[in-house]
């Protein structure tokens, strides 16, 4: 039976999908976390840097390509679609309880304090009437 949202998902589809979802516990997460990725990349970069200094002690000069790359903000590159990081590599939950969507206040341009003061004591109907007056 469909609900208020008009969406009716067959129970056999849900049952089949539930079996697939439960398999998640049997495998390691497939996405490398951002923390691990950065740690590994930093370790590799450090080893390469030491090796280069050791091999070419007086010949290292700033490479224009490296300079150009290092000047690019990875987030900008990601936003521009230049780098297709896995979602988890960009946004790893440090703690699930801390994870929040962006604040709606930006969209409606008011502060919590102002809203609480204005709205907390009003009923839904009062707010509705106010907005529609």
């Amino acid at each position: 039976m469909s609900q208020k949202d008009g969406i009716k998902i067959p129970s056999d589809i849900l049952a089949k999908n539930a079996l697939e979802l439960k398999k998640i516990t049997q495998s390691e997460p497939r996405v490398i976390s951002l923390q691990k990725w950065i740690s590994t990349a930093a370790a590799v970069a450090a080893v390469i840097a030491v090796a280069l200094v050791y091999i070419f002690p007086s010949e290292i000069t700033p490479d224009p390509i490296i300079e150009q790359l290092s000047s690019v903000d990875p987030v900008d590159a990601y936003d521009a679609g230049l780098v297709d990081f896995e979602l988890d590599m960009v946004l790893e939950y440090s703690s699930p309880d801390d994870f929040e969507v962006d604040n709606l206040e930006e969209e409606i341009d008011v502060t919590d304090e102002e809203l609480n003061q204005l709205l907390d004591e009003l009923s839904d109907d009062e707010i509705y009437n106010y907005l529609n007056s």
């Binding site: 604040n103 709606l104 206040e105 409606i108 809203l115 009003l122 839904d124 707010i127």
Partner: peptide, 12 residues
């Protein structure tokens, strides 16, 4: 993670 006041305003 949004205050109830902001939600009420947003909803209406």
């Amino acid at each position: 993670g949004t205050s109830e006041g902001a939600l009420k305003a947003s909803y209406h």
